[in-house]
Design a protein around this nucleic acid. Structure first.
Lengths: 209, 209
DNA sequence: TTGCGAGTTGAACGCTCATTCAACAGATTC
DNA sequence: GAATCTGTTGAATGAGCGTTCAACTCGCAA
């Protein structure tokens, strides 16, 4: 029954890395936020980068229980689940007044030459996200044309989210995020309309302003 | 006729910020790369952040002559110009073995609480890019459905590029970038096909792997 | 010849950073 | 009750950071 010192450090680091980024967060910041002394941190982690590794691993394990399940609560339709998840990120942006969006994306672009284990965990996080969305599009079955690569579409959804977060964070407005998601919605609507020989017919909403 | 010290500092900073990011580039790095002493830098710039401002302003002024014109050389069709520009970024990724893509995007996500002038210049850079692509889609006229918001489509193209760069940089492979651009191409193709009562008919290529 | 301003030099400054370490505390084991 | 293990303490370390500054060079104008 070890004390929760490690947990407190991890939780403090998660918050600080999301708010300030990795490089701009000092070890002293983490220590202050966790209410822990320097030696204790180095008792649990070999160094600062290993705290980052633990944070990224926590995110990775949290994709399903902490991200997907809350976003998909009450949403059964697989395609609606994709946009429910995007809406989840929109809410995150909105609540923070567009100051931070996806912590994985921020760290991915912040570290220009990440050590291999860090890069591997970043890639694993992206892969978990993509695979979940790919599952939605696969579950959509013949509502989408058979010729559409489900995984590529999932990647496209992730680039839309990450790019939208980047632009919206830069001008502190949800406009760019909303515009990008609106276009993705229009695309998926058109895909559904084009393959509508089977499955429930879909009403095509115009992508206007 | 002032010596080119300021130019050398600017050029060195552009290269280093793109390669290592802003925070990870020390003033000493810039001085070494430019072959200049500390005092000289502070003769031309009040501080490190003002070097960043000058770099961002240089990028902004270079969007047309340094980015668009080379990418669009010999490409007349407005819609092909959009994808020619995306191909330009692909080449940039490829030549650097997927280690760096868009420097504006990297800095935008690296700085979590940028000073107002820095954020304004980042936004101005994105806006210049978006407006240029918006011009392409406007020029495409009735090849695209009238209901499609040209600016939103331009934003969508930027999120595709920035998101694609992020993912490709993370797993050091062009796959994600290619997948995202392929889906954007399919979307634009479908938009053209749907509004094809006027203009040149467009052959719809399947988005398969 | 003197004076001046633009540009240069590089050592020095104060600060923050990640990390270390010897000493200590308390529970568990033998 | 001695030994051991896990965890804690917080001052100290040394490197690197952005920045400052007094002294200097040099071309040019008066």
């Amino acid at each position: 029954m070890p004390p929760d010192t490690r947990e407190r450090l991890l939780h403090a680091a998660i918050g600080l890395f999301a708010r300030k980024g990795y490089a701009s967060t000092s070890v002293a910041d983490i220590l202050d936020a966790a209410g822990v002394n320097a030696g204790s941190l180095y008792h649990f982690f070999p160094g600062k980068q290993d705290v980052l590794l633990a944070v990224l691993e926590t995110y990775r394990q949290g994709i399903d229980p902490m991200l997907l399940q809350p976003a998909w609560d009450g949403v059964a339709d697989p395609i609606e689940r994709v946009f429910a998840l995007l809406g989840h990120y929109r809410e995150y942006l909105r609540r923070t007044e567009c100051t931070y969006g996806c912590p994985i994306g921020s760290i991915a672009l912040e570290l220009h030459e990440p050590d291999p284990p860090v890069r591997a965990l970043l890639a694993a996080n992206f892969d978990g996200w993509i695979s979940a969305i790919e599952g939605c599009f696969i579950e959509a079955g013949d509502r989408l044309p058979a010729s559409v690569d489900r995984r590529a579409l999932a990647i496209f959804a992730l680039t839309t989210m990450e790019g939208g977060v980047m632009l919206s964070r830069t001008d502190r407005t949800l406009d760019a995020f909303d515009a990008a998601v609106r276009m993705l919605r229009d695309y998926v609507d058109r895909l559904q309309a084009s393959g509508s020989s089977r499955g429930t017919p879909v009403t095509l909403s115009p992508p206007g302003p």
